[in-house]
Design a protein around this nucleic acid. Sequence first.
RNA 1: GGGAGUGUAGCGAAGUCUGGCUAAACGCGACGGACUGUAACUCCGUUCCUUCGGGUUCGUAGGUUCGAAUCCUACCGCUCCCA
Length: 299
Amino acid sequence: MPKIPILVIAGPTASGKSALAIEMAQCFNGEIVSADSMQIYRGLDIGTAKVTAEEQAQAVHHLIDLIPMTASFSVADFVKAADEAILAIHQKGKLPIVTGGTGFYVKALLGLQNLDFQASNPEEVALLEKKSLDELVQSLKAGPQSDFIATVDLNNKQRVIRALQIQKYGLKNSASRPEYQSLVLAPDWPRQALYDRINARVELMFDQGIEKEAQQLYQAGGLSLQAGKAIGYKEFYPYFEGQGDLASVKAAIQQDSRRYAKRQLTYWRHQIPGLEWLPADQIQTELPERVSNWQKALG
RNA sequence: GGGAGUGUAGCGAAGUCUGGCUAAACGCGACGGACUGUAACUCCGUUCCUUCGGGUUCGUAGGUUCGAAUCCUACCGCUCCCA
């Protein structure tokens, strides 16, 4: 079976991925597959900078508004849903365009990441979370060792817990996945320009009424939910509990977003081999060129 | 004008009484990094300068001392209280 060509538009938050994806969809007869761990949630629109209804009218979007804000979601869920969406788009004779800020999802989608281990058991994980890191590390060391177990960061409680679950449940029968021929491009902004964009976007979110969404998420469970940890919402919780003012909430969201962008940059730089950066001030003209050359080369 | 307090690395803040173990705790920020099912998560490192030998620091200037962020003197700035 021939590889399915997909265009991936990567990059940190507020780098303009969504708009570029829409342009490419219009230009190359494509449909967009979101690779964003927060935009899959219904009701989280403003804070996740989700594409608007108008934007969705300009290009078909997949993997947005998939589940309620109280639900959990994993990379494996993403890969499964994305594979299906991409296949469907491809079969329609259209170009799948993957875009989103969740590098881990993109890495897994591109097959750069094995997902061979069994899923964790949520109840067991909840119990393990109550134990101390020390205790968890002891039981990890007491269990059967493997190459994977040896690489686990023992300071990282979350990863140690996952490792314990992997130790317990081991491998699964991995289903065969489609193979992709990908072109991965990302806008490259000067750091300060990116930060300015982030700050401005957060301002805009406040004008659009992000507080109301945050209130809903807070009431739905806040930090106890997977979605409740999203930047743009979690910073409101102390305020809802009577601490601080809106100005400090805004500043916190801006700062968390900047730091998030920094982590994303690290991820894209090192975890996605083959990713190419296009200078942001030239991307409007370079991106279509690159995509069109790529398509020609594919035949 | 009188009184009390205070000035420490990008910021906040210990250390000062009881001088050496102090290039100076800790927090924040910033930067760099990790990442196999929570990934907008979680975790790690660096953060005065350096040709890595060393050099220059704790408001400023001087003094005491073998040795000062720490003790003494003067000056400058800031805060608060009384006038």
